[in-house]
Simulated scan of single mutants.
Amino acid sequence: MTTAKDLFIIAMDPQPDRSVGQGDLSLALAGAELIDLIEAEAVALDGDSIVPGQQSALDDRLLDEAAAVLAQQAPYEQVEDWLWRRGRDLAAAYQAALEADGQLARGRSGRSLFGAERLEVVDSPARRQALSRWEAEEPVLAALAAAVGIMSGASEEEPNLDENEAATTVLAVVNDAVMELEAVRQRRSIEKAAFANVWRGP
């Protein structure tokens, strides 16, 4: 399992205080993919630019897909641009992939991330791995979850990623992108309310 799939499973937890927006989650999933690609040495960071590394199969269809769509020659893509491009509808892609793998099933007590259909995570080695990383407060997973509003509850301190400069860079950009998306939502909400008031009249 990848960090992105572990994050998706954590986001599917039916607890009411863990509601996650599709856009926020998609951005964080793109960040998780990039961190896994860096860990696998498939790519590296040169400042904020993503440069290609070793070309090898990554034993995960979505991660292989992510590596395949990265720029292989200069000018290289910036981390921020990658998050917005790769993140488009990425949460839905992970939902479909986990359903196809039998990791998600329809159920009454599950979570509905997109649309009315409720899904729940099937008890499996993949789920147990994700929960193990979560309960151990694995720094990268904890930081990605926090970026989309999922807190572990065990500690209010930020995860310590001082020894992983590349992951720290990616996580900082993920946080900025999520905040930018929230600002766009708020602006649209204000504009919608103002438009409604115009039609409503004095």
Rank of each mutant, 00 (worst) to 15 (best):
D6V: 04
D6L: 02
I9N: 04
I10T: 08
A11H: 01
Q15Y: 07
R18L: 11
S19C: 12
V20T: 09
G21Y: 02
G23I: 12
D24T: 08
D24I: 05
L29S: 02
E33F: 14
E33L: 11
D36E: 12
L37F: 06
L37D: 05
I38F: 04
E41G: 07
G47N: 09
Q55K: 13
L58W: 06
D59P: 00
D59C: 00
D60A: 05
L62E: 09
A68T: 09
A68Y: 07
Q73F: 10
Q78L: 15
Q78N: 15
R86I: 06
D89I: 07
D89Q: 14
L90D: 05
A92E: 12
Y94C: 03
Y94M: 07
Q95F: 00
A97V: 02
L98H: 02
L98D: 01
Q103H: 12
R108N: 11
S109D: 12
L113A: 03
G115E: 05
R118N: 07
E138Y: 01
L144T: 02
A147G: 10
G149H: 05
A154D: 10
S155D: 15
E156V: 13
E157P: 05
E157T: 11
E158M: 12
D162C: 04
E163T: 10
E163R: 04
N164Q: 12
A166L: 12
A167N: 01
A167E: 05
L171T: 06
Q186K: 13
R188A: 12
S189W: 12
I190W: 15
F195C: 10
N197A: 15
V198L: 15
W199R: 15
P202R: 14
